[in-house]
Design a protein around this nucleic acid. Sequence first.
DNA 1: TTACTTGCAAATGATTTGCACGTAT
DNA 2: ATACGTGCAAATCATTTGCAAGTAA
Lengths: 156, 156
Amino acid sequence: MSNIENIEYDSLLIRFKDLLKHNNLKFTKQREVVLKTLYNNDEHFTPESLYLLIKETYPELNVGIATVYRTLNLLEESSIVTSISFGSAGKKYELANKPHHDHLICKCCGLIVEFENGDIETKQEEIASKNGFKLTSHLMQLYGICENCQKSRKNK
Amino acid sequence: MSNIENIEYDSLLIRFKDLLKHNNLKFTKQREVVLKTLYNNDEHFTPESLYLLIKETYPELNVGIATVYRTLNLLEESSIVTSISFGSAGKKYELANKPHHDHLICKCCGLIVEFENGDIETKQEEIASKNGFKLTSHLMQLYGICENCQKSRKNK
DNA sequence: TTACTTGCAAATGATTTGCACGTAT
DNA sequence: ATACGTGCAAATCATTTGCAAGTAA
């Protein structure tokens, strides 16, 4: 692990600890492990997939899925993680401090592809100011069928 | 109700009936009423809100919520309706053949302004196809502070 | 010590499913 | 007549919550 990554993780951890202290909450191994696992794995996790990975990685901690849910909610309220939801397949979480990007989501298998597009962001600013709004953030998710799912549909 | 609306509805209905026939499914009052209610009300429905409106509008049919779910799934698979996920507020359905609109949302007072922007939609198509996706829908919400709220903040 | 946190299991809420009866074709 | 569709209630799935025991501060 490089120094840069450690610095990033350390600052995340400090933010998390500060937040806990401010709210009279305690810093626990379980909470740390949730944050660390999100940080070490560049994926979009469902609560269950995160729970399974944590169980596998830290079997001695015997973390319960309820704690994963509780910690994800805490982290999301504090804007340390964000979630995206796609239909009935559920909700997925990722760290919020990644460089800004939007999501392309397969309605069929749940695959998520990240993208970034400056032209669209410029247009969004134009639309907002045309309507008298001062833009603070946005949510853009494109839903479709990915290459693989298009193929498997044809095979049926 | 104008002729134009009737023609639109009739063509929708024909599409639905064709689809049912094609799959050896039957055209029933309940299925018709789900489509008609979506058509007559320019809203985003949760399965439950749609169910409640149908019960209120056609009490004699005694439609069950399971049928609303079943019909929405059927209509969605057939691309007659699409669903959009509004964050934690759940999943909402609307007719797929309406012109797509997006939302500009004031974080301060909740004002919602609808807009439509062809340039962005074109870019979205480009992004999707560049990633091998066949685009079916999108969710774009711009969050900000509206004109009025900007003024009243200054007054404070 | 004393709150807060945990894992567990039970509870909840949304959606789906099995079944016997009803209905469109 | 024969599937298929329906409402109902029970089942399921993801998520939340109550509780007694454990742990950070």
